[in-house]
């Protein structure tokens, strides 16, 4: 069985419907459960007080801001190499979701940073690369809207996705490249020594899983919308020609 059969729009529509339903349910359960657990049933941090509760929003949104762009990069490469329209439409579908996640990470970071660092914003490597990533998201969406020819738009936005991936990776690893800056290192890592305390860790993992499922559900839904919109445009064009 080949993975490429899902590049067929009809097959994608058939398979994505049940997957999307499961993703919606898991997203709702994990986000609701994680936020309730984190907000109501975890203690304040000895240094950061109750602002530590912002971690359940900030870390998952930042995670998805970066990973959404990586997903767009992979989908764009598939478009370039295999010319599967569904992959180009999936990249287009992911952009607004990634932009919202980036905006959420920037906003919650600023709100968290103000009482902890004494400033809403600092031209810190990670903060700055995240802001540039947000601008790339806006540019990517604007480019899709600006170019009428779908294939040309897919080509141009795929190139933009490749350029922007530099900033997506920079957002992830900026704290390792530069030691200066206010932003601390990763809250979670494969090395258990570097993780936050268990009392914050488990609700955070649950919320992060919820954001991953929400991203999957939204991208599937939006890709299905794009496929329908393309079919609608094709039918309308055929009617005009007739």
């Amino acid at each position: 069985m080949s993975l490429w059969k899902y590049a067929n729009p009809a097959e994608f529509m058939r398979v994505s419907a049940p997957v999307m339903s499961v993703a919606w349910v898991l997203a709702g359960l994990c986000i609701f459960g994680g936020l309730i657990w984190g907000f109501f049933f975890t203690p304040d941090d000895y240094k950061q007080g109750s602002t530590v509760k912002i971690i359940y929003l900030h870390v998952p949104s930042a995670l998805m801001a970066i990973n959404a762009w990586i997903m767009m990069l992979v989908a764009s490469l598939i478009w370039f190499i295999r010319r599967h329209h569904v992959s180009a439409l999936a990249a287009k579908a992911a952009a607004p979701v990634g932009a919202v996640m980036t905006l959420m990470a920037l906003f919650t970071g600023a709100v968290w940073g103000q009482p902890m660092w004494g400033t809403w914003w600092e031209w810190d490597p990670r903060l700055t690369s995240f802001l540039i990533l947000f601008v790339f998201y806006l540019g990517y969406m604007a480019l899709w809207e600006a170019v009428e020819d779908v294939e040309k738009a897919a080509d141009l936005t795929a190139m933009l996705a490749m350029v922007g991936s530099v900033f997506a990776l920079l957002s992830r690893y900026a704290v390792l490249f530069w030691n200066q800056g206010l932003h601390q290192g990763a809250s979670l890592s494969l090395d258990a020594e570097e993780n936050v305390a268990d009392v914050f860790y488990y609700p955070l993992i649950l919320t992060m899983a919820g954001f991953v499922f929400l991203f999957i559900a939204l991208v599937l839904l939006r890709t299905r919308t794009e496929i329908r919109a393309r079919r609608l445009a094709a039918l309308q064009a055929r009617e005009v020609m007739a």
Partner: peptide, 30 residues
Amino acid sequence: LGAYAGPVLLAYGASLVLLGGVVIWSVVRN
């Protein structure tokens, strides 16, 4: 939430608006 009630509630409120907004927008457009 002590002295930080304002920032914490602002972060949660704005995030729920953003998440709710993108979900509603996507569902309505579909």
